[in-house]
């Protein structure tokens, strides 16, 4: 087919520079990544455990690591540099490289959907993000995982805990969205 380029611009953009890929292919990619991670390093994909270890490491700067290790939670999930630390950091690196390559990197304080509902105040958005992040991680640790550890890694192994997590999380999210963003009509 010899479609003129100006009528078919997306086809001219190389895959590496496109701002988005087909979500089904991205999902398949994450599925295949999970095969490799299980097979090669015998671990599930996960993120929230490492974030809570990071919070323990930060706490240790104030109290010393001995005091942190006396905490019953951090005694079993001891903060230490390792595989999951590198994984977390390089998840960020991957997103950075990807957004630079597609020219979608932007400094953002108030996203569009928030702005439509709550206005342009950066302080309001920042406060909500902070409180939301705190509730999110507290819940992830209580449940034993997050969208990665439960939502993908656990569900694909047919874990009872993960399917319960997946369903309750979705229902609670929809309920919260109805409160925060009531429909206008």
């Amino acid at each position: 087919m010899s479609t003129p380029l100006r009528n078919n611009v997306t086809a001219a953009v190389p895959v590496w520079k496109r701002a988005s890929w087909n979500p089904y292919l991205v999902g398949a990619g994450i599925g295949i990544l999970s095969w490799l991670v299980f097979l090669v390093v015998n671990k599930p994909l996960g993120m929230s455990t490492e974030v809570s270890k990071f919070s323990g490491w930060l706490a240790s700067l104030f109290t010393g690591m001995d005091a942190v290790k006396e905490n019953p939670y951090w005694a079993k999930t001891t903060p230490a540099f390792g595989y999951s630390t590198v994984f977390l950091v390089f998840t960020a690196v991957g997103a950075l490289v990807s957004s630079l390559a597609s020219k979608t990197f932007r400094w953002e304080t108030v996203p569009a959907v928030w702005k439509d509902r709550f206005g342009v105040s950066p302080a309001k958005r920042m406060a909500a993000a902070f409180v939301g992040g705190a509730i999110l991680l507290y819940g992830a640790r209580m449940a034993g995982g997050c969208t990665s550890g439960h939502g993908i890694s656990g569900t694909l192994q047919l874990a009872v805990s993960s399917w319960l997590f997946f369903i309750v999380m979705f229902v609670a999210g929809v309920g919260t969205a109805r409160l925060l963003f009531p429909s206008k009509n």
């Binding site: 909500a128 509730i135 999110l136 369903i167 229902v171 919260t176």
Partner: peptide, 28 residues
């Protein structure tokens, strides 16, 4: 798990990210 997931869902809507996507979004 149920209580944690309920908190997680509420926090995710308020924050707008989950732990993995939040870490990645910081870098964008």
């Amino acid at each position: 798990v149920a209580l944690g997931a309920a908190l997680f869902g509420a926090g995710m809507v308020l924050y707008g990210y989950c732990p993995g996507t939040g870490v990645a979004a910081v870098a964008t």
